[in-house]
Design a protein around this nucleic acid. Structure first.
Lengths: 348, 348
DNA sequence: CTGAAAGCGCTAACAA
DNA sequence: TTGTTAGCGCTTTCAG
């Protein structure tokens, strides 16, 4: 099989043209080429079963038409949604996406960043977990455009797009309080990200506003662990573990807010194992509104975050940046929305 | 910011060396270079904050060190797992993965195939949904190595790796029959893929062997639809719809086997809405063993398919192929395993 | 051990 | 309208 691959020179020869002319027609340049020549070249290309070598073009044009996307894990449906949005926009602009799973590993994240640069990527969308502030500086210095998604990065040259986690948690708690709940627990993964801290703030704000002081013990944070890498089962298990702690307390809460739907699934599951009815005895609210949430029994009341839209928005902004268009805003915050389903109810 | 990017020539100048020598040390060639020269070049590279341009190297070496992966949708956790496995192996070999979501769209699949080739990818792992048999032929002719995953492709030049769906369904039915069930329904997405047909065969084989003839109406296949693209909600809804049909029949089944866990989730959900207890009144068994299955209530009894392993295996084989190693087998079938949880029980 | 030179496949001045 | 030429950044003979 594979002989020497066909190049524009082969086509040139066959069509009695020069490589330049071939390039002009095959790359759809606006450069004038006679109709006849065009035809001959197209025919030759087809006859030889020609496939353009983008490496050549890209090297010449210094543009790989590829963007990099770094996320913690594609196994998390939250990110799968985001990536879908990114990809859609990228495709529309003729860009490809190099997807990198950092597996919550800062080392890996740094490595990927480097490789992306070597691959001549001109733009990167990243949901970073690195706490290292200046990790991105060398890349920015080289002119790479960077969009931070979901996780804010403290750097004036980085475009930011995220959700209002505070407001989401605030809305959820307000809702519960409105339903008569005064004993609301917060079950969350470690507060090692700004988003999680905002979430806690929303929880506190809603309580303060209502003049309620929740027990310290109702705030349950799972232990910080490095290798969360593999799958959503980790979050689920967290939800179970923390719920168990809650149930072993003298003063049980009547409602539980979880930092995400996966965790909420664990909460509900554990409550089930203790024979506690949801929402009859304890109400549960999740966060994210991934598709899982409607599949649970009872269907999960949760805070929707427009994940797909965030992906689209992040990528649109990046495209604007790369194409030299005007940018709307350097910092964008997307609004959450409370999705009322069946897992939270009025306190009797 | 971004001036002219730094090249090996800049380094050569600074280190009083030639570009050739710089290349040799920076690409870790085994070519002999004096220790002193090495040091100087390394120092210069660091001083100039040099980043190699892989496009140059790859064009020269005619090897993009990238493989392509085409799957229906990353939003389906089944594929997310597979991709994780692929990526792990690719990384180990210094390869990158260009991930493409075909969205069940044969047109898109064909486009991606083309782009991958243009990007000089030398190997592709594909879970194809195209029914067009000779789609891959031109690519194979150009020497691209292709691995078909999960969905068998009828082409002797394509390496195949898949699951024994027949056996999985057979095991599930055997189990149910062993539990006293004789009225087992099969709820499935359209039989437009070989895997689904195998699944039906397994279902039939188990029945035949037990001397049971299931009602025709217990086989419920959802309607063929083109744009399933977005998310797992589609499968879930399918499960609900088909279950509803089942429940409106005079002769209800006592057990339901679903073609995948997402569908099974829909089945359980719909049964719940009808006030039917699982597994008390109707048993349910899923397929795939995605993480969702342990989060459902009741925890789903299901047929595990080693997804992650399939990804690893597919990629290992591809790496062997690309590195010119001996290949173990052209066709590999991975074994399913029944995971007994709580959603199927003895018929009282 | 080091360097000069050619060239991977393509595009873009510049000439004709 | 077409062709010639000179690279994009890198590797790799082939000479020294």
């Amino acid at each position: 099989m594979s002989d020497k691959p066909v190049t524009i020179h082969d086509i040139a020869e066959m069509a009695n043209a020069s490589a330049a002319t071939v390039s002009r027609v095959l790359s759809n340049s606006s450069y004038p080429v006679s109709h006849d020549m065009r035809r001959k070249i197209r025919a030759a290309a087809k006859a030889l079963n020609y496939t353009p070598n983008m490496l050549g073009r890209q090297l010449k044009k210094n543009n790989s038409m590829t963007i990099g996307v770094i996320i913690p894990s594609i196994t998390n449906p939250f990110y799968a949604d985001v990536v879908l949005g990114i990809e859609e926009i990228a495709r529309k602009h003729g860009y490809h996406v190099l997807l990198c799973n950092s597996h919550q590993n800062p080392q890996l994240e740094a490595e990927y960043l480097q490789t992306l640069l070597e691959k001549q990527v001109k733009g990167i969308i990243v949901s970073s977990i690195s706490r290292q502030k200046d990790l991105l500086q060398p890349y920015l210095a080289k002119g790479v455009k960077i969009i931070a998604m979901d996780q804010i990065i403290d750097n004036p040259d980085v475009y930011q797009i995220g959700f209002d986690y505070r407001k989401g948690a605030y809305m959820a708690c307000r809702y519960l309080i409105g339903q008569g709940h005064t004993r609301i627990a917060l079950v969350t993964a470690p507060l090692n990200r700004p988003s999680r801290i905002s979430l806690l703030n929303g929880y506190q704000d809603a309580h303060r506003e209502a003049g309620i002081t929740p027990l310290k013990a109702w705030f349950q944070e799972s232990e910080d662990s490095e290798d969360i890498s593999y799958g959503s089962a980790f979050e689920f298990t967290n939800g179970k573990l923390l719920t168990r702690k809650l149930l072993h307390m003298a003063e049980r809460p009547t409602a539980i807010l979880a930092c995400n739907d996966l965790t909420a699934a664990g909460v509900i599951n554990e409550l089930g194992e203790y024979g506690i009815e949801v929402p009859g005895q304890i109400s549960v609210i999740g966060f994210d509104n991934i598709e899982l949430s409607q599949m649970l029994t009872p269907a999960l009341t949760t805070v929707d975050l427009p994940k797909y839209e965030m992906g689209r928005f992040a990528c649109s902004t990046l495209m604007d940046l790369l194409e030299g268009n005007e940018i709307r805003a350097k910092e964008v915050v997307l609004e959450p929305e409370l999705i009322v389903r069946k897992s939270a109810a009025k306190l009797e």
